[in-house]
Design a protein around this nucleic acid. Structure first.
Lengths: 182, 182, 182, 182
DNA sequence: TATGAATGAGTCTTCATTCAT
DNA sequence: GATGAATGAAGACTCATTCAT
């Protein structure tokens, strides 16, 4: 009777979505079939039916997060292309990102998990590599890497400090980083 | 006859040390009494005898890591005081840090764990706050925060990339960040 | 092929039955998952699958015992309604009860457990309250309470003495208790 | 320096006293060396040093409780000897007893424990037998047993009901029980 | 195809008891 | 004589995974 509920693709998506909601709350390591099934409001069996194992589920969810990130990068690209001032636009984009704490937490979990699960490293690199590629359209590659690292540092700081760096400061620092030495 | 075995302080230290070895391998969430006991080569009961709970053990180990970090900061302070050129000295220190992958992994685990375990946030802040305080002796506070964030970003990048940023690039970026705009 | 094993209701009942068998042997506090699972001839996991916790299991078993007691009271009611002489009939019923040592032990365990587990008190009151209600159909309420207390005292004595009170004595005492003072 | 603390007899007594305090709170089965040692404010080792095993400790504590009960019976004997009216005096004594909930709980624990630990049965019988002996000085033996059972029933009821039987009712019932049928 | 009952391995934790000091 | 460090057995409980239906 409930077509949507019975749609396999939809089921998978709900489960992944539930996992993504839970990761910021309990960490990747805190995921359990039961927790995910309850959050997704699907039967317990569904989580093992649609995914080979819990690891598979976690990996799929993190891949989905990476895909979302790729989308985010595309919108950054668009903004940078049309924005008037590179550092200021970047600072604004970063400030927007800071508003999505859960996205940052997922990413941080991914970094940590990649530390002891090598198969996650390519996934963990996606954001940073994509960001570097994007920036490399404006500055040289080494500088792009440095700026990407700086941005990651800013996000990391925001996670554990009550007050993030002020956008103005960020913009200034970005400008300094990206301006070729006189 | 068995003096070593009867040395409580030594026992505690061995257990903490084992936990610190394991965190980079399995993550904070991957710690188990059994794993720690086996690594420390102490009976299973010892891990619960010396620590109220596994959480207590993990927290104690992370606190010990923070203490090591504080020591590291003191040696950075010394190096900066005597070093000729601030950015170059910092770049060297960072490069040294990059050699201690396990220390970086522990720190990263701490960041991630702090994301869903608020009681760890003060601990997670220690490195970043200490670094900021140190830098604030040389530049204004906002800049110090930005530089600290940058350094954390560099370390993070090194964790997931095969090749870290070149010290020369780092030194250049630091100089740019720390030089007051003309 | 294994129909019986797949019958959840049956499983639950077996586990509860096992607990009820064990309580007289080891006490409520002596119940363990392992003990119950072995007695019920079910896998260890079944005891935690069907009951939230060991406390839940014990509570459920005691509730089942209370239900049996309620049935017992209904048959007492029937017997008293049709019996010729109230005290003599009661004495006979009590004497019958004395033959079921395990039921008495369970009830005694419940009383003791209720002493330090307040959530069991309502359950512990069921027998005594039901009995009082029943008797209140024949004598005034205060007397009914006194008689109910007397009956409980008789049962208690039987538990620790080799030889219970003689039914004749019991009948005489009941008659004395229930006869309005001249 | 602290002579009392170092006095072995005193130590034993403190431990037993602690156990007696704890039994109403956690039950006989809930006793642990640690709990008792903490309550008695003695080192953990003392509880195993002065008692062969935890069972021994519990048994000794219950024996001490029985001894207290024997004392209680002596004062009942004295009261009954000098009191004007037997049922009324007994009712008063019972009412006093009801005020000492912890003593009732200990006794109830003893009854329950005796159910599955036969070695405790003689101890459990002490109160009831002593009471019967005492009453046998005033009424025939069978009646004495019945009255003793009634009194135990009253105490039991008080444990699980908020409101005990009224002393007046108790006195009336006792009078009825103890008056030879006309 | 989909489910949820079922299981047993593995987790943290408690604790009686031992024993070196 | 006394203590408290130490240990390993055992307990409650969780959960990934399997599989009958």
């Amino acid at each position: 009777m409930n077509g949507a509920r019975r749609n396999p693709e939809e089921r998978r998506r709900r489960i992944i979505q539930a996992a993504l909601e839970l990761i910021p709350e309990v960490g990747v390591g805190g995921l359990t079939h039961r927790l995910v099934a309850a959050r997704a409001d699907v039967p317990l069996g569904a989580t093992t039916y649609y995914f080979t194992s819990l690891d598979d589920l976690a990996h799929t969810a993190l891949t989905a997060a990476a895909e979302l990130t790729a989308e985010g990068l595309r919108s950054w690209a668009e903004a940078l292309r049309t924005g008037p001032d590179l550092p200021a636009t970047l600072a604004t984009l970063i400030d927007d990102y800071l508003g999505d704490r859960s996205r940052m937490l997922i990413w941080n979990e991914l970094y940590a998990a990649a530390g002891h699960r090598p198969e996650l490293r390519p996934l963990a690199r996606e954001w940073s590599d994509g960001l570097t590629r994007l920036l490399a359209g404006y500055v040289d590659h080494q500088t792009a890497r440095a700026v990407a690292a700086f941005i990651d540092g800013i996000l990391l700081h925001a996670l554990i400090h009550d007050r993030p760096l002020a956008p103005g400061t960020v913009a200034g620092s970005l400008a300094a980083l990206m301006t070729p030495p006189r």
